[in-house]
Amino acid sequence: MNTGNAELGTTGAGPGPADAAPEEHPIAPYVRMDRMPHIWCPTCGIGTVVKCFATALGETGVDLDKVAVVSGIGCTGRVAGYMKLDGFHTTHGRAIPFATGLKLGRPELHVTVFSGDGDLVGIGGNHFIHAARRNMDLLVILVNNFIYGMTGGQNAPTTPLTAKTSTMPFGNFERPFNLAHLAASCGASYVARWTCLHVRQLTWGLKDAIQRRGFRFVEVIAPCSTLYARLNKLGTGFNLMQFYHDNAEVRHGADTREVDIGFQDKIVCGKFVDDPRPTFLEMMDEHYRKILGDKYVPMPPAGGFIPDPDSCGNPDPNRHRDGAAASPRGPTP
């Protein structure tokens, strides 16, 4: 872990004065402790994914000042508000295009989209497929609980056939997306799936994904005991975790056509696609350099911000565009 990044200095200071402080939770540096407790239900899987992501960030040593998290709306949409990073809680379905703007406005950022299935592939489905097609340099963590949680258990584009939801009270008769296959066929350069039970693999998988570029899609199957389990009489969150234990199967490199998820059926996990093809910005840079030669002026890694020469507010003069104009786009791997 890069200790240089563990400083707490942002909007939320840690809990309590030092003399009375209990031992700090290992992910406290990554989480806005002043916003705890969170809104998620007991046995919800989202917190586990946050923990795995925080751990993965720490293990990769990425500069946390350069990591932004973007969420849409829904239970998972709250992640951007709980992580102690530049966090953007945006509109329903629009996390990916918002994140696209962040990335293109300041190419050195590591932009992570953290949201739910209804948000990213229901209302936001069009943005999902196009960002994958462009191989936009985004890490997309999609927490899939098969249902709309925050609005009260409605049908999702991921709800398995026959599963009950509040808007499919007699069981779902719409075919759900196979998200891994959707992402892969649209051109995502990295596609993986884990469940909330696979804490170690998920942490490793997120670390793996953080260190790659392009459109990286990590689907995490997560329990929603309040709605999905209750409406389908599947017991508690514990029972769902037990189900993952008994029915998840790790098959790295599996053909994504064969990883669709049926109701209470086996869940194929693993890294399915790892194809480091050029990202949107790399394609653009290479193309413009070829066509325009010396006339091409790329946006500096620090972004298209044009500082006021008289301003005292700029925190780091090295980030000025003049100083960075000659350097290439994007984070150095």
């Binding site: 696209t100 703007g101 962040l102 406005g105 300041r106 943005h127 653009m284 911000f305």
Partner: peptide, 26 residues
Amino acid sequence: GGTFVQMEDELASMAAVVGASWTGTK
């Protein structure tokens, strides 16, 4: 040093503009 991107629709265009502005880029 500017970047233009043709988005998939106007929902995305506006969202991207808000995102990019948060980098200080007009």
